[in-house]
């Protein structure tokens, strides 16, 4: 047993991980969600705003991270739409603009009463990362002379009175790295006191905690937090609860539980091999 495990081909580990993720997907395993503190903070930051507040949503991620971040991005869109907030979308990653398009599609298909230009607007990608953030805190038109449909901001009802993003009531940032939440905190939230919430990858999430609560109102870390956020929205908005498309993160927590358990098992097994080897004088 010891020798077999010690010399185990790593492809068996790959196979076990494949099965740990595949089987719950195929079995459609779903677990209940308990809304944790951070998910509640993020939910409240949007929920407590008066209906029709201005929210800037910057989706700074690309397809490589969409497994983690797209469910929470869509949840932000649905929550803001259900509340009737005015949504200003933008992306700081070159491959991020199509992620915003998915949210625009969600609004158009699930909230047909919302009108482009009056309730939501999209700005195209701009290069420069933190420089874009810095610039739009002072001059939105300098960076975005037009929206993504090629219309001047002065002719769009929801942008004509916006000078810069200091006019926003909340910034929602979905971030996979740099530029992302750190830059929004550094160049918008901290210097101008604009309330900001973040949804970010698991890699980034622990780095955002020191900013809470002064510089960041709350953070959703990876898919688990997205599932909790979905649960928080479902509890208040029955229409969203009934929408199977709005349960994507919760669905993904099935494979997550089994794979995490496998990881624990692998760590224990690896350490058992280590201790037996050390006892035998091999390590």
């Amino acid at each position: 047993m010891y020798n077999t495990l010690k010399n185990l081909d790593r492809r068996w580990v790959f196979l076990s991980m494949f099965l740990a993720v595949s089987i719950p997907i195929l079995a459609k395993t779903v677990f209940p969600e308990v809304v944790s503190k951070q998910a509640k903070l993020v939910f409240d930051a949007i929920e407590d705003l008066p209906d029709g507040s201005n929210i800037l949503l910057s989706y700074d991620f690309d397809p490589a991270s969409q497994g983690e971040l797209l469910p929470m991005a869509q949840a932000f869109t649905r929550h803001c739409s259900a509340k009737g907030h005015k949504q200003y979308y933008m992306a700081l990653w070159p491959l991020g603009s199509p992620m915003v398009d998915l949210s625009v599609e969600t609004i158009e298909s699930e909230y047909p009463d919302m009108v482009y230009g009056e309730d939501f607007v999209k700005f195209d990608y701009k290069a420069g990362g933190e420089a874009v953030i810095r610039m739009i805190t002072q001059d939105l038109r300098g960076m975005f002379p037009l929206d993504s449909k090629g219309v001047s901001l002065d002719k769009i009802p929801m942008t004509k009175n916006i000078k810069n993003i200091q006019d926003m009531d909340l910034i929602v940032n979905v971030s996979a790295g740099d530029p992302g939440t750190k830059q929004w905190v550094q160049f918008a939230a901290t210097p101008f006191g604009i309330t900001t919430v973040s949804g970010c990858t698991g890699v980034q999430a622990p780095q955002m905690y020191p900013y809470i609560p002064e510089q960041l109102a709350g953070v959703l870390g990876a898919i688990k937090a997205a599932a909790e956020y979905e649960a928080a929205i479902d509890a208040v908005y029955p229409d969203i609860n009934d929408n199977p498309k709005a349960q994507e993160a919760k669905r993904r927590m099935g494979p997550q539980l089994v794979a995490h358990s496998l990881m624990i098992g692998l760590i224990i097994l690896g350490n058992w091999i280590f201790y037996v080897g050390r006892k035998r004088g091999e390590a």
Partner: peptide, 22 residues
């Protein structure tokens, strides 16, 4: 804690790709 969160992220990415295939 960072490791735990990183693992969570990676598995979510794999789940998304397998959801695409299946």
């Amino acid at each position: 804690a960072s490791f735990g969160y990183t693992v969570m992220g990676r598995i979510a990415l794999l789940a998304q790709r397998l959801e695409f295939l299946f």
